[in-house]
């Protein structure tokens, strides 16, 4: 998959329009930021991109595939998602969490993939501790590696910087850049503009479920965001 296109996507919950008239395209090797205040529809859009929510209208195509009756599992295999709630079982250790999901995703060399993921998360020495005993930053690192276990080409991140200190944020940014170099397409929702500044290759401003502007230059993001969202 080297291309993601979203065409006139809308999602309604009863009369509430969570999203409407969302159209954009992006290519592999980009880091796309969905920026906007709370309730702007960022999470809903990510869920639609992840195929777990179906749009009320419009369509999303992944490369040349669209999630139809049969292609669902094949598309899901190329997607890695880090949700806002991290998708981890607190009663399991980091290694058990990763092993479980590696099996679920049909990863070939489970033990090897899991230990390299743990090393990547810098948690090899705490691998057998329960996730419930981890700090927010450590959980976030495990959760990110969990999402990347199966080498997805489309990486979706919902508020990945929330609750992270500066070192963790820097590590996360480095990891994302590394994935970007590897040719992945990364879409992240955030309202942390300071981190987004300089990281994103494309910014999409969302407000009340609509795209109110977009940007391909991430410098000076803060000013333009304020202007776009306020207006």
């Amino acid at each position: 998959m080297n291309h993601l296109s979203v065409v006139d996507v809308a999602r309604y919950y009863g009369r509430r329009k969570a999203l409407s008239q969302i159209s954009f395209t992006c290519d592999a090797g980009e880091i796309v930021g969905l920026l906007g205040p709370n309730g702007a529809g960022k999470s809903t859009l990510l869920s639609i991109l992840a195929t777990i929510v179906t749009p009320s209208r419009g369509q999303v195509t992944y490369g040349d595939r669209a999630p139809g009756e049969s292609g669902g599992a094949a598309i899901r295999a190329t997607i890695g998602m880090l949700g806002h709630d991290l998708f981890l079982y607190p009663e399991l250790t980091a290694r058990e969490n990763l092993t479980f999901f590696a099996h679920l995703y049909g990863v070939a060399d489970v033990a090897g993939t899991v230990s390299s993921a743990l090393a990547q998360a810098n948690l090899s020495d705490r691998a057998d501790d329960y996730v419930s005993s981890f700090s927010r930053g450590m959980r976030q690192r495990v959760a990110l590696e969990r999402a990347l276990l199966h080498g997805p080409q489309l990486i979706l991140l919902d508020e990945p910087f929330t609750g992270l200190d500066q070192t963790s944020t820097a590590a996360l940014v480095a990891r994302l850049r590394e994935r970007q170099q590897a040719g992945c397409l990364i879409v992240l929702a955030t309202h942390d503009l300071d981190v987004a500044e300089g990281l994103l290759s494309r910014a999409i401003y969302l407000k009340e479920g609509r795209i109110v502007g977009s940007d391909t230059d991430s410098r000076g993001l803060v000013d333009r965001y304020r202007r776009t969202i306020r207006s």
Partner: peptide, 11 residues
């Protein structure tokens, strides 16, 4: 922890 979504996301 919204893990049901993670299960449904698996291919």
């Amino acid at each position: 922890n919204d893990t049901l979504r993670a299960l449904l996301l698996a291919p």
